[in-house]
């Protein structure tokens, strides 16, 4: 079990990342809060020794995505994407950002994860493949398909 200080540091450092991953998967603030808490409680109770910060970050991403998938596996929670999550973020978000996020949220769950990890966290396809336990070629294919869909939705600009 880790110390409270160590967990607090992780919450401060990775809290935004976990919140964004929750946004990619979950539909509302309440679900996001539950998963957020679950992830850091797992971190707090875990005995895993991290080799470096990258290892720690990748571990948290994996734990968060697995927690989201387990959460959504419950048929009672499975709903169509209704973008409530965006509205939960409040009205302070600029219009352009809302449009982009809405476009991302219309992608499939797998595509959303890969888009976030690639465009925001800056992971390469092989790195994403390692984190998600997928073949890098599958990641490439998925990324290309997502990029095409976003291009159609957000205009003709060349993406990444």
């Amino acid at each position: 079990m880790r110390s409270e200080q160590e967990t607090n540091r992780a919450v401060e450092r990775y809290g935004d990342m976990i919140r964004r991953l929750c946004l990619v998967h979950l539909k509302n603030e309440t679900d996001a809060q539950d998963i957020f808490q679950t992830v850091f409680l797992k971190y707090f109770t875990s005995e895993v020794v991290f080799e470096n910060e990258e290892h720690e970050k990748a571990w948290l991403i994996r734990v968060c995505l697995n927690a989201c998938r387990d959460w959504l596996r419950d048929v009672f929670r499975r709903r169509t994407v209704n973008l409530d999550a965006l509205y939960d973020q409040g009205t302070e978000m600029p219009q352009d950002n809302q449009e982009v996020l809405q476009a991302v949220l219309t992608l499939s769950a797998k595509e959303r994860e890969i888009v976030y990890l690639h465009y925001y966290e800056g992971y390469t396809a092989p790195q994403i493949g390692k984190i998600l336990g997928k073949n890098p070629n599958t990641v490439y294919t998925c990324l290309t398909r997502a990029r095409e869909k976003l291009r159609k939705k957000l205009g003709g600009e060349q993406i990444g």
């Binding site: 302070e92 978000m93 991302v104 925001y120 976003l150």
Partner: peptide, 12 residues
């Protein structure tokens, strides 16, 4: 644009 959009999302 994608980066900026995600950047606007924070854990409260």
């Amino acid at each position: 644009r994608i980066k900026a959009s995600f950047d606007a999302v924070h854990a409260s």
